[in-house]
Design a protein around this nucleic acid. Structure first.
Length: 492
DNA sequence: GTGGCCTTTACCTAACGGAT
DNA sequence: ATCCGTTAGGTAAAGGCCAC
């Protein structure tokens, strides 16, 4: 009999091998990325949920890290007797463990609320909560109601630490209880899987459901490797071919119909040559006459908003870099970075208006992102709306030009800026940057910089790193433009 | 007017881009 | 783990055409 936490059982619902590895070889799992950020963006959803659901401030929180499993179970039983709100109550049955985010006295029993940081009730929550409630009920808990509390991303934070309205509660009692009969079977199957040898399951769709499995690299390393994987073909369903044992582009039957982009990826990959429609690129850029601007934003999007007037998961702009390229190739740079800890939006909007000038194309990469941010600022600050929307009118997207005119085998089917730049402008490298080398570390740096405990020296260091990183981003776009526009003789 | 066939439009979803 | 907007591609519904 193994101790099976609910999350590990969920793993088995997708793939028995995933469950087996979770229990027997957790060391093989890739570190999950975002969860271990040093500086948390504002509040954690769970903390807020406890405050919201503990209006009388008499709830009992069980700390599994501190107390350990056995003590958590004992405390749970003790607190159940007191009929007060309980957070992280622990239950155990048939080797399965479950911890309930919130338990509240309800009628003659208890109401269980599972807190999720998503913005809707996902299908897989039903299985998740079915296991949760099964374990709790089998351990003797009387449940009268089960609910999911998820984030309401249409809610606007009014400030003053007033987080009522952040969470939206959805009753899932029926959906959950109707699955109870199945859970018993899942538990037995899980135990028998764990008692056996490692199941060998080939990688497939299930590896990414409901999110990427941490053992994917381990499993795929044991399979034949394609030198030119067919998954490099953009928007191409590999499943039908995988089942036929076709994993390499060289083995893809010529009869398979590919769209022009896929065809290009295939050809360039197999002949190892980049493709560049230089005349086409020049023609695409010709209508957009200099002076031109090159713009990039950095944002932060905390689940729990920290600034009055912002929504959950809203992308709040805190930094931009702007290069201006004159008619004869003169390059200037402007930038903005707000590390005050206050909402940067308003000063950002003003600085952006001031920096962009009155006319000339504003080049960005994947225009939807920057344009959406600008539109949002226009909505929030009507006084600036006209001037902000005027900038949006000037935005020119370099992504479709890259996609239509350029491909290098090293892109591996992707036209994201991180795939395109090293191919087009190999001499530019982010490796030389210290600290901040990508968007993720930019957010970390921002959070650390605005944290009250951060020293002045450290803050200045982070500021320098952030500025260097964002400036390199737009400079890289200038270099990209230079190649596409055929101005390689310019010294930029 | 109905049935059959083809074309167009409308709608939906997965993939991809950006940000963490 | 999470968000969002755009887009490509597929499918379903609607529309158009003509023979019978």
């Amino acid at each position: 009999m193994r101790h099976l936490s609910k999350s590990k059982l969920m793993a088995y619902r997708q793939c028995p091998r995933r469950l087996w590895l979770e229990i027997h070889r957790p060391d093989l799992r890739e570190d999950s990325t975002a969860t271990e950020a040093g500086f948390q963006a504002g509040y954690i959803v769970g903390d807020i949920a406890r405050k919201i659901y503990d209006s009388k401030q008499n709830g009992r929180l069980i700390d599994i890290q501190r107390d350990g499993f056995e003590e958590a179970f004992n405390l749970t039983q003790k607190f159940l007797g007191q009929r007060l709100p309980i957070f992280e109550a622990g239950f155990k049955t048939q080797g399965a463990l479950a911890f309930a985010d919130i338990l509240l006295p309800h009628k003659n029993g208890w109401r269980m609320v599972e807190v999720k940081s998503s913005t809707c009730v996902k299908d897989y929550y039903y299985e998740d909560i079915a296991i949760q409630t099964y374990v709790a009920q089998a351990a003797g808990l009387s449940l009268t109601k089960v609910a999911v509390a998820h984030i309401d991303n249409s809610w606007v934070y009014p400030g003053q630490q007033d987080y009522r309205g952040l969470l939206k509660e959805v009753d899932v009692t029926e959906e959950t209880l109707s699955r109870q009969d199945q859970v018993q079977g899942w538990l037995q199957e899980a135990q028998s899987i764990l008692a056996s040898a490692e199941p060998k399951v080939t990688t497939g769709k299930q590896c990414d459901i409901p999110y990427e499995c941490g053992f994917h690299d381990y499993c795929s390393a044991q399979e034949p490797q394609a030198e030119y994987p067919i998954r490099w073909l953009p928007r191409f369903s590999t499943e039908p071919y995988r089942s036929q044992g076709i994993i390499d582009l060289r083995n893809l039957p010529p009869t398979v119909s590919l769209n022009p982009t896929q065809q290009r990826v295939k050809e360039c990959t197999l002949n190892g040559q980049p493709w560049f429609d230089a005349a086409g690129a020049v023609a695409d850029l010709a209508p957009h006459i200099l002076p031109g601007y090159f713009l990039d934003f950095e944002t932060i999007n905390p689940a729990v908003p920290t600034w009055k007037g912002t929504r959950p998961y809203q992308q709040v702009v805190f930094q931009f870099s702007l290069h201006r390229l004159g008619k004869r190739g003169k390059l200037e740079h402007k930038e903005f970075l707000d590390l005050s800890g206050n909402d940067p939006s308003r000063t950002f909007a003003m600085a952006l208006i001031g920096a962009c000038g009155e006319a000339g194309p504003v080049f960005v990469y994947n225009a939807a992102f920057e344009k959406s941010r600008i539109s949002e600022l226009a909505e929030r600050f009507p006084k600036f709306a006209k001037r902000l929307l005027a900038i949006n009118e000037r935005v020119v997207d370099l992504l479709p030009i890259a996609r239509n005119r350029y491909y290098h085998p090293s892109q591996q089917g992707s036209w994201s800026i991180k795939a395109v730049l090293p191919a087009v402008v190999p001499e530019l490298s982010y490796q030389n940057l210290e600290g901040v080398q990508d968007g993720g570390s930019a957010q970390d740096a921002f959070l650390e910089a605005i944290h009250p405990d951060t020293s002045v020296d450290r803050k200045e260091q982070l500021e320098r790193q952030l500025l260097a990183y964002c400036q390199l981003d737009t400079y890289a776009m200038v270099k990209l433009w230079q190649v596409f526009a055929g101005k390689t003789q310019w010294r930029l």
